[in-house]
Simulated scan of single mutants.
Amino acid sequence: MMNLLVLQLLNGLQLGVLLFLIAAGLTLVFGIMDVVNLAHGVLYMVGAYFIATFAAMTGSFWWGLLLTVPAAIAVGLILELVVIRRLYDRSHLDQVLATFGLVMIANEAVKIVWGTSPLAVPMPELLSGSVPLMGPLQYPVYRIAIIASGLAMAGGLYLVINHTRIGMLLRAGATNRAMVSALGIDIGKLFAIVFTLGAVLACIAGALVAPILSVDTGMGESVLILTFVVVVIGGIGSIRGAFLGAILVAVVDTLGGVFGPILLRSVLDPSAAGQAGRMLAPMLIYILMAALLCVKPDGLFGGRG
């Protein structure tokens, strides 16, 4: 049982750092730009398709990952210029409708360019295999690499947000966007940087997960729901809240899916316990969100505004 717990905690941590990379961009876009972007999950999907394409072209996962970054920057800048910039002064309903339409357009465009069959990204040879953890327990090297790289990017983002001039502007914009604009800061340029940064983080998350999941259309929708939960729990506009919320949501989701049926077997027969566990596990994160919002309506680190 202890081995299973450790394994699932690691799986939860791995999912958590990926959720953080997606949620960090989403919470900045929502907190600073006041834009509800339902198309953020599309960027996660596009990142996975980018690395699948570039890895196949170059024959190297590392070159594919390297080429994904400038491609993600280009996509972020184009989307901000063509679509998102036109939504700044529109209502949240207009933003929801426009970005939902963007999701449908992007999914169809992906089908036209890459087809409907799932794509596979080969595991980099350097990170293949497993390492022993405790007793007979082994854990894939690549998943450990995802955890390490995600934590490293979280640390880098923390330093940028809290110890650089651009980070100061981002924090000020999240607190009082009108004051930042009144002080002479080019708010349009700031918004473009924010959106592009969010796009790059989401694309990197999709690229990192591609070798362990099949790359297919619509893969961004399910993760977007979890990401919105993370943003609400952590507090809109808070990077620290996004990180803690992502880890909390991922661990609860992972442990609930594995240990829920096991615990229910003490009061139900195995078949009923398995069925009830599969039904209740997806509800746990929403129960967690509701309970937390009853205590802290603005999220863990959200500010009233």
Rank of each mutant, 00 (worst) to 15 (best):
I225L: 15
A23K: 05
I212P: 07
T58C: 08
H40W: 13
V267H: 06
V231C: 07
D253L: 05
F301N: 11
V83C: 14
V258K: 11
L15T: 10
A148T: 13
A246E: 10
M123C: 03
T58K: 02
F30N: 07
G235E: 15
L213I: 12
V36W: 02
I78P: 00
Y158E: 12
T27Q: 07
V29G: 01
A281M: 11
G31F: 06
F20K: 03
G274V: 03
T99W: 03
T58S: 14
V251N: 02
A52F: 06
V230W: 06
C203L: 05
I225G: 12
F61Q: 06
V249F: 08
Y44H: 06
S91T: 15
S128Y: 08
L133M: 06
V121G: 10
L201F: 13
A98N: 03
V121T: 15
R165D: 10
G303E: 15
L10K: 02
A154D: 04
R278G: 15
L10M: 10
R165M: 11
L28W: 08
I22C: 14
L284G: 03
A178M: 05
N176C: 02
N37W: 10
L102M: 13
G206C: 04
L10G: 02
P124N: 10
G218W: 14
G76W: 06
A56R: 12
S117Q: 10
N107M: 13
M134D: 14
M279E: 08
I144A: 11
L13A: 15
R240S: 12
V232P: 01
G241Q: 10
V295R: 09
A272F: 03
T175P: 00
R240C: 00
A48S: 12
I187V: 12
V215M: 11
I287P: 00
G241I: 01
T227Q: 13
M289Q: 04
M219P: 04
L208C: 02
G206A: 02
A39H: 08
W63M: 11
I233L: 14
I247F: 09
G150I: 04
A39C: 09
L7A: 13
W62Y: 13
G31Q: 09
L284R: 09
L126M: 10
I22K: 01
A210M: 05
G25R: 09
A24P: 02
G150P: 06
P132L: 10
S128V: 05
M153F: 13
